[in-house]
């Protein structure tokens, strides 16, 4: 199973290992935790454990007949997909004694899809195990939540994020820089590499020497994404990054009122973006203004 190369999550993996060892497998599990921390990898590892020896390579290549992996297409898991899933679930395993359904980003099921899927959870097929994975369990209907055993994943440790980044060929200096601001998510760290401009901007803002003439200029190369979406994502990322940096300082024991003020500012802006969908450009401008004035 070394090929999966999972870092961290020792407790969860030990728990799953014990479940397999003691043969007290439930019908359905829901893996919950931040985006980009390796929940799906752990789910695959669990699947290999269930499907048995010799399944590892085919599981990784995605060609094991007794494993079905479902993920959103264009952001949603449709009712048609759920019908295919149910068709697949209705059959006995092809090779062994168990089949595994792995549904990543299960919250992407629309209401009708979730309702249809509920049937599979209510009357679980005899030989199938259902593994749902999501960073946003609150978006799942309670009827689904209540029928799964929930397994919570903690964010990765800084060192673990760094190790994964190095494994993926990120250069050492960058990995060291990204790991502390990634909030325990490899996914976020990798996204930051793509958005190096955003990272530079956030750092500049944080350290008080903004010479960045404009963030939007730094973003101008990301031409493929529609402007509003690009700006919104950028703004969110900046806010998340700044918050990560604040947290780091607080962890180090700094407790100045300035930190708290800035923390509150970020929270307020995040809320405006998420809940009220305010213009991201406006939010960034306001952020820049307030952030500096708070420093004075």
């Amino acid at each position: 199973m070394g090929t999966l190369n999972i870092k961290g999550h020792q407790e969860v993996r030990a728990l799953l290992g014990r479940i397999l060892e003691e043969e007290r497998l439930g019908h359905a599990y829901l893996f919950v935790g931040r985006e980009g921390i390796g929940k799906r990898l752990v789910a695959l590892e669990f699947a290999v454990g269930i499907l048995g020896e010799g399944s590892g390579e085919r599981v990784l290549r995605g060609i094991h007949p007794d494993l079905m992996v479902v993920e959103p297409e264009e952001g949603i898991i449709s009712i048609d997909t759920i019908r295919d899933v149910q068709e697949w679930l209705s059959l006995s395993p092809m090779e062994g004694t168990k089949k595994v359904l792995l549904m990543d980003d299960a919250h992407a099921m629309r209401e009708e899809a979730a309702n249809a899927f509920l049937k599979s959870l209510e009357e679980p097929p005899i030989s199938s195990l259902i593994l749902l994975v999501t960073p946003r369990s609150h978006q799942l209907p309670s009827t689904i939540l209540s029928r799964c055993q929930v397994v919570r994943f903690a964010p990765l440790r800084e060192r673990e994020v760094e190790e994964v980044l190095l494994d993926q060929g990120v250069d050492e200096a960058l990995a060291k820089e990204l790991a502390p601001v990634s909030q325990g998510s490899v996914g976020q760290a990798l996204a930051l590499i793509e958005d190096e401009g955003i990272l530079r901007y956030a750092k500049g803002l944080y350290e008080g020497d903004i010479r960045v003439s404009s963030l939007l200029k730094a973003l101008s190369w990301k031409g493929k994404v529609p402007a509003w979406k690009r700006d919104r994502e950028a703004a969110l990322r900046v806010l998340t990054l700044l918050r990560g940096m604040l947290m780091k300082d607080m962890e180090r024991g700094e407790r100045s009122p300035l930190l708290w003020e800035r923390h509150r500012l970020l929270a307020r802006l995040e809320e405006s973006l998420y809940q009220y969908n305010l213009n991201p450009q406006f939010i960034l401008e306001y952020l820049e203004l307030r952030w500096r004035s708070l420093a004075l």
């Binding site: 679930l89 059959l91 006995s92 395993p93 097929p125 005899i126």
Partner: peptide
């Protein structure tokens, strides 16, 4: 099921 013409394997339903 096998006959002189050939053989067929049908995967069973996972149900009681």
């Amino acid at each position: 099921v096998s006959t002189e013409k050939g053989e067929i394997f049908v995967r069973l339903l996972d149900a009681r």
